[in-house]
Design a binder for these strands. Structure first.
Lengths: 220, 220
DNA sequence: GTCTATAGAACGATAGAC
DNA sequence: GTCTATCGTTCTATAGAC
């Protein structure tokens, strides 16, 4: 593993490998993504993976970090912007959820159309059995959730701590489940709904999450 | 693959294999679950898998069918009971969701404590890349969702077809996400919430889903 | 930095004795 | 039905030429 590989050629090879690995991991999962697949798709030699990353595992960490980190940075940036805008006043719940959902779904909605690989990637990263991946996700997720829950606590003082925790848990699960199962939206609707319309999806998702989060009593 | 293996000895071997395969698949996923692992855990010979199931793939189908089928049968049984009870009157949305969530979470709540392997199994079955598993899940899921959506349509005539489909999609995703991520509930709450309290979890989940499903407008 | 070649291990599946 | 033994394949990782 090179400590300082900064030649343009090496960076291109590195990036090609990461991109190919992301695509194949999203499609197949960690075990089924073989280094032979990756190097064939990246048009590099099999040995290049171990030269640049040391192992399949280190390559996988690079893939995850490459995608998760920018999304979470942007989420916290938007939350900070909301706090700066509202000062000590409580932030609307819908705005907090928009900061949480937006960067994720926008990352999956490129100018070249929806990036299904990314949505699958994030979904798969959650369920992947390997311990090193689960612990990495925990690091990413814990910091983020504590920051968002603190703001939700301020915005919804009427909620008990228990209700707050359960409902934030459900909101996260709805978001994650929607990413994982997103491809099934068209299936479910018999083809009438457009799974690539991210703006509408996020709008509907936010409405759903807000209603579930702030509800005060059960209804018929 | 024996066409009629009904000896007690063979049944025990078969069941031991299915049980071991379920546990290992839940922990590791399809690719990482090796037949050597399975037969070692089941205390049977490696060749027994191919004798009883023909292939690793057929074994996996048996594992999934063994768990999914009873849960879905019970879901539809409860939905039928609700229809018989309410006749032509609309069924309360909360009751419909209880029929959808109940059998799943009850299956995971045995008398010997929570069956984390089952919850992981179902979560993993959803994200597993293998095509034969995705198509199997589709068969199970489509029939079920059409039945439940038909009743929700009757109970919520005020909802547009589009809203109905989006929201049912989110409800399913919340349920699935909650199963997959269930182990993280304690983590999220810093240990104050008890992830093994299924009654409370299902109650909270149902309230959340109902509120999100029937909401009429966005709120601050 | 990138290649060829290959070591070394693990896999699914099967043949054939009992 | 269950065993041992093994075939043929595929994998990660590495050694060494260029």
């Amino acid at each position: 593993m090179p400590l300082a590989s900064r030649s343009p050629k090496a960076d291109k090879t590195r990036n090609d490998i990461v991109r190919a690995a992301e695509k194949l991991f999203a499609e197949k999962g960690f075990r089924a993504m073989t280094l032979r697949d990756v190097t064939r798709q990246a048009h590099v030699n099999l040995a290049a993976v171990n030269y640049h990353f040391g192992s399949k595992r280190e390559l996988m960490l690079a893939v995850i970090r490459n995608r998760f980190e920018p999304i979470n940075v942007e989420r916290l940036r938007r939350l900070d912007a909301l706090m700066a805008k509202h000062l000590t006043a409580p932030i609307p719940v819908a705005a907090i959820f928009a900061a949480l959902f937006g960067p994720l779904f926008e990352s999956a909605n490129t100018e070249h159309g929806p990036d299904r690989a990314l949505m699958q990637l994030i979904g798969r990263a959650i369920t992947e059995p390997a311990d090193f991946m689960r612990s990495m996700h925990k690091v990413f997720f814990n910091e983020l959730s504590q920051r968002f829950m603190a703001e939700l606590r301020r915005s919804c003082p009427q909620l008990s701590e228990e209700a707050l925790q359960y409902r934030f848990f459900f909101v996260i699960n709805t978001m994650l489940g929607t990413i994982i199962e997103q491809a099934r939206l068209e299936n479910l609707s018999g083809g009438t709904l457009d799974a690539t319309d991210f703006d509408k999806l996020v709008k509907q998702l936010t409405d759903f999450a807000v209603a579930g989060f702030i509800q005060t009593d059960a209804t018929p």
